[in-house]
Amino acid sequence: MFISLEFQQQNTNEKELSRVTCWLLGAIITALSIALTIALLVTDKAVPGLADLAAKNLDISGVENPVTAVLLNFRSYDTLLEIAVLLIVAVAILPTQSSTTTQFLSVDDKIIISPVLVGLLKWLVPLAILVGGYLLWTGAYSPGGAFQAGAVVAGAGVALSLAGRHDFLWQTTKARVALNLGLLVFLLVAAANAIVTGTSLQYPVEHAGWLILVVEIAATLSIAAILLLLFVRLKKIAERSEQEINQ
């Protein structure tokens, strides 16, 4: 009740618009959408886009799944910047105090949780990590890849965090390495490529497969760490359980 009241103030300093304005805006946006739809309907689609070109070069891309080939070879620069985007939010949300402990994952055995939950976690967490590994591996051949794998592995962390006994210490060196590893490895591989082939991000054809796998493993780790960080920090601030979050 109190919270919902607070949330009512939680806007960007904008007041509710009057009904007339709403209808007017609705009408304008509907008209624009219809115009856009008509523009879509009267124009032909480019056939077949880049499908042929991608298929033709798939053999020398180092992977068999065309989407993975686009993400990590043809247009790997986009993926590199995409990991940078994730890193931005991670840095923005990261607690700034440095810590004295070195342990990333801490367990508080004094918190009593249901034995059923303990049993479930024992199964669920290793299973999620296993599935993540599988998704990462299979990304080379069929749908899957670093982001999907990272999301599933982060899910294991989310389950631990929700159960209540575990806490993650993001100020530790381990955590910071995990957050940055994906971008760092990607950059190093890009630089190594530039030295070997003369062009940044160009994989030597015979080594493309394993190099891409290395990049993907590092990316998976970082994506998992960053997604988990986002969840844990948002959960903490929503529960007001951490005083220093206010900075």
């Binding site: 070879n73 043809f74 247009r75 790997s76 991000l201 160009q202």
Partner: peptide, 13 residues
């Protein structure tokens, strides 16, 4: 123009 990845437009960036 620098063709990242050596593919060149339109496939590469």
């Amino acid at each position: 123009r620098y063709a990242l990845g050596g593919w060149g437009a339109p496939l590469g960036i």
